[in-house]
């Protein structure tokens, strides 16, 4: 291969073309995941290390399965099992792993900028950001796009022209940030909905987003006529920092319920990146209804991560994955 190291650090900064290529490549892999033998030889001989320094079930598992279905060797490193607990710095840990010549390092870290930091120092390993602090979670936005693309295709609509409300703790959400940039690239209308304490006005003035974004402090108004309601997990550990008076107050004002959804566009859908606090940011009635696409999000997450790993491993060499996805099952 041509040794083209291509990191995926953020949605911000991607071209629309690159974004759509990742989503479309993900769609090709959905077909692979529906086969009896869900494995292709595309990345045989490649090594993916999942360096997860923050608790995670779905993202880590999703990356691991994605790597394995591409026939790559996947290795998982978690904080408790790493030398970080012995006081090793993040950089030394990453350099140590790089010395074992992996092709891709998938990084989850609780500090914003951690993936950028490693990308700046690693020379031969592509870094894929699996969530850094409050900054970005690019593969989540991509899998959300794939989920919406698959859903709305059935109604003869495309990803472009959607109106989306992102609801809840925007301030601390990397999912919200990645999705904002993604939908702005597509020219979609993005509404951010939440209490002032969790939705700082700075979001209205992000360079490159003005014109696509509007802020709402009323849930009823914010979700009126939207096609997509994206709920965010309320980070319960934030309560001590005065962001909300109480869970009850938050839930009364900003919890998404079935009756509220009547104000949305017909056939509007609900997304949630998980894990959900049922009864707080969203009611069980909504989550358990066919409008909620949580399970599809998880399923398509594997396909998207296959597309992302392919992109990172092969750099600019692969533009479309269908030849590869259509290859012989291993």
């Amino acid at each position: 291969m041509g040794n083209a190291v291509r990191h995926l650090l953020s949605i911000e900064g991607l071209t629309k073309q690159h974004l759509l290529r990742l989503v479309n490549n993900g769609r090709e892999f959905v077909e692979v995941l529906q086969r009896d033998l869900k494995k292709v030889p595309t990345l045989r001989g490649k090594t993916v290390i999942n360096l997860f320094l923050e608790p995670s079930t779905r993202t880590r598992t999703s990356f691991e399965i994605a790597a394995k279905r591409l026939s790559a060797d996947a290795v998982n490193v978690s904080e408790g099992g790493s030398s970080i607990v012995k006081g090793e710095t993040l950089l030394d840990t990453a350099l140590t792993l790089q010395a074992m010549a992996p092709d891709i390092l998938v990084v989850r870290h609780k500090e914003s900028g951690a993936a950028h930091f490693l990308a700046r120092h690693l020379r031969t390993t592509a870094v894929v950001n699996a969530g850094d602090g409050m900054h970005e979670h690019p593969t989540q936005a991509l899998l959300d796009l794939l989920t919406l693309q698959q859903h709305f295709a059935a109604h003869n609509r495309s990803l472009e022209g959607l109106r989306i409300a992102i609801v809840g703790d925007i301030r601390h959400s990397r999912v919200a940030r990645s999705n904002m940039w993604a939908h702005a690239l597509l020219g979609n209308e993005v509404r951010l909905v939440g209490p002032r304490t969790l939705l700082p006005e700075y979001f209205a003035s992000l360079p490159g987003l003005r014109g696509n974004i509007s802020l709402f402090h009323s849930l009823q108004e914010g979700i009126r006529d939207v096609d997509v309601v994206m709920c965010l997990r309320l980070q319960l550990e934030r309560q001590s920092e005065f962001f909300i008076p109480s869970l009850e107050e938050y839930s009364r004002e900003f919890g998404v319920t079935r009756t509220l959804l009547d104000a949305c566009a017909p056939k509007a859908v609900v997304l949630h990146p998980g894990p959900a606090n049922r009864g707080i940011e969203v009611s069980s009635e909504v989550l358990d209804s066919p409008r909620a696409l949580m399970q599809q999000q998880v399923t398509f997450g594997v396909a998207i991560r296959m597309a992302v790993l392919l992109d990172a491993a092969l750099g600019g060499e692969v533009e479309e994955s269908h030849q590869i996805a259509g290859g012989h099952a291993a």
């Binding site: 914003s112 900028g113 602090g133 900054h135 970005e136 700075y202 979001f203 360079p207």
Partner: peptide, 12 residues
């Protein structure tokens, strides 16, 4: 600095 940039970068 608390600003649009810190908001974008996800830094407190």
């Amino acid at each position: 600095n608390e600003s649009a940039l810190s908001t974008k970068l996800g830094l407190k």
